[in-house]
């Protein structure tokens, strides 16, 4: 499982990518899906997830749809057109960063 510090910077790209693959998702579903896709290596903390989701919504990248389950409100998040435009740049930057890390640490790691 990766540390919270490592995950902080990549939470937004993860959320944007997931929501670009699925039409809409709610918070618990996002946590479970990331856990499943990463083979339990990435466990998103709720304390990081919801502030990030709300911040993305405030920036206009996400919109919400409320569905009532009995008296309980479930909020689904989905990408806005602005949010869809953010997915590719965010992923490109992240993958470029991963390549840079590989350049920095790759040779050293392979010799150890």
């Amino acid at each position: 499982m990766y540390s919270r510090e490592l995950l902080k910077g990549i939470l937004k790209p993860i959320i944007l990518k997931l929501l670009s693959d699925q039409s809409r998702m709610y918070g618990y579903e996002i946590v479970q899906e990331v856990k499943r896709l990463s083979g339990d290596k990435i466990l998103i903390k709720e304390g990081s997830l919801y502030p990030t989701l709300h911040a993305l919504a405030a920036e206009g990248y996400l919109s919400t749809e409320s569905v009532m389950i009995g008296k309980r409100t479930r909020k689904y998040y989905k990408l806005t057109s602005d949010g869809k435009g953010q997915v590719q740049p965010a992923l490109t930057e992240l993958l470029d960063f991963a390549e840079t890390l590989q350049v920095l640490f790759g040779p050293k790691l392979s010799t150890t």
């Binding site: 918070g27 919801y50 989701l53 909020k75």
Partner: peptide
């Protein structure tokens, strides 16, 4: 309120 709803559902 929005955060309350999210957390309650979670």
């Amino acid at each position: 309120v929005g955060l309350q709803e999210d957390l309650a559902d979670h």
